[in-house]
Design a protein around this nucleic acid. Structure first.
Lengths: 214, 214
DNA sequence: CATTGTGAACTTATTCACAGCC
DNA sequence: GGCTGTGAATAAGTTCACAATG
């Protein structure tokens, strides 16, 4: 099969399939149909089949997919068994919570380094990760092989820290601060803007129903 | 102007414009062009003009937009000056961090109630919000007029708590747990799946450059 | 004459409809 | 018969090109 360019949205969904398949395997299910996957993920069965078909002919008519085989195939294409090494910048409330976030353990994500500007935080250890000074970022990131970083610092520092992250060799930034940062075109940014998520969800609920109070 | 159905992505972008305009107004700028907004938000000027045009003819050729006027118009269409009342379920690491998240203060978002299953957490107060027992959810949510909720409980409890949130009258759920939840069709869900965000960002970086270590 | 506003072209993503297969 | 895989149709979203305008 020719290697197609897998679009970003498909990648996100495939990651969801991989996780779901992991749960199925844990439950000793070794077969699954696209319909079952659909009801587990909230997507449609056609979409799932289409997504999976980008990676080859893996399913069998009447039987569905073998969970272990499908998971392996998807993981090989997408992640190549790699572990994602992440560097955290900003050990405030949100940053510290992410350090302790148990979801990462299950996935192939490991926060390998943490940094903060404030001397009071440097040197402390949270969840087994030592907090470094941002001055050491380049060296620590090279040593720990971090490839993507979390930006979880106050708004007014985010561009400065983002510049530092780029200078330290990171190639992707998950930006939790509510301002957009400017980076060179070879660095990818994903904004997770909590405020906008809440308000847009709220707007959608308003659209469907009328308003209640306030 | 006829009221068009504003698509969800446009809403998210408009919320970004509103915030950006707020910053401009703080800086005493009373005019802004679509190009300036573009460079501030990382979007294109055409997209911004197109988005804004859904709300009327607000700009002036050669001059651009008046910041205050544009912000008012967008806010009126989208939020109608409302404050989003949010109920938090699960006061663990992530939940507690969200309670303290300063970004919400700036936006029109207020976490008005917090709940936890564990008796050890019930009754405590975090960031001025008292933690209630989930048993009181319906009453407290009615009293506080919460419309959307945050689901930040461990994976194994998320469906159970989601059911409770729906039963308590919430109309939207921001789901931070890495499993998809099932809700009635009149309830909107937004999944914020941190694991998938990191891995997909990583995949994108791999696509652009070669791999480095690991 | 720089800037908005917008129909048209294009691109991307999803859904449909059904062929193929065990 | 029940399931996968997929070309074709449709829908959604973005960009282009340019007319309109103070």
């Amino acid at each position: 099969m020719a290697i197609k360019q897998v679009p970003p949205r498909t990648i996100s969904r495939v990651l969801l399939y991989i996780r779901t398949l992991g749960n199925l395997i844990k439950d000793k299910k070794d077969r699954v149909s696209s319909q079952e996957l659909a009801s587990m993920t909230g997507l449609t069965d056609v979409q799932i089949r289409k997504d999976i078909s980008a990676f080859g002919r893996i399913g069998s008519p009447r039987i569905g997919y073998r969970t272990a085989e499908l998971k392996d195939t998807l993981e090989n294409f997408i992640l190549q068994k790699k572990v994602v090494h992440v560097a955290l910048f900003g050990v405030g409330n949100l940053g510290a919570a992410l350090l302790k976030y148990p979801g990462f353990r299950e996935e192939k994500i490991r926060i390998v380094a943490a940094f903060d500007i404030h001397p009071s935080k440097v040197g402390r250890e949270i969840s087994g990760i030592k907090v470094h000074s941002v001055d050491d970022a380049e060296e620590v990131i090279r040593r720990t092989c971090a490839v993507v970083g979390i930006l979880a610092v106050p708004e007014r520092e985010s561009q400065k820290v983002a510049d530092l992250m780029v200078a330290s060799g990171l190639r992707g930034i998950v930006n939790f601060s509510p301002v957009s940062i400017t980076v060179p075109p070879n660095v990818r940014v994903k904004n997770i803007d909590l405020g906008i998520e809440f308000i847009s969800l709220f707007c959608e609920t308003q659209r469907v129903h009328g308003s209640r109070c306030v």
